[in-house]
Amino acid sequence: MNTYYNPEDLKKFGNIAEFEKNLANKFFNYYGEVFKEGALTAREKSLIALAVAHAVQCPYCIDAYTVDALEKGCDEAQMMEAVHVTAAIRGGASLVHSVQMMNKAKEITM
């Protein structure tokens, strides 16, 4: 089937080095460092990644971090709560801009 997103392409992420090795290596090294256990646990980072994946609506990331979150010991309830955090922030970000709308409306209406 011809689609823009192919699940098999997720496995080829590393191949981006084919066109530009230096930056790809730097990126993957950085990526690896970011997800290491640090001040945040690997599990916490995985949940953040899952939430961000939903914010950027990347099907590859959603696929990868659903598996990763499960493999870091999260359960479905924790994962869904993380996505609700995404939704709350996204929704909130829209709604808080309504203050601007209100300001402007008040400015030009009687």
């Binding site: 646990t41 599990r43 493999e71 870091k72 010991g73």
Partner: peptide
């Protein structure tokens, strides 16, 4: 004993033990 409820690998033992 923890074992995954599905087709995925188990988490790091020490972190999960803490949870």
């Amino acid at each position: 004993v923890y074992n995954p409820s599905g087709a995925f690998l188990p988490p790091a033992q020490h972190a999960l033990e803490l949870d």
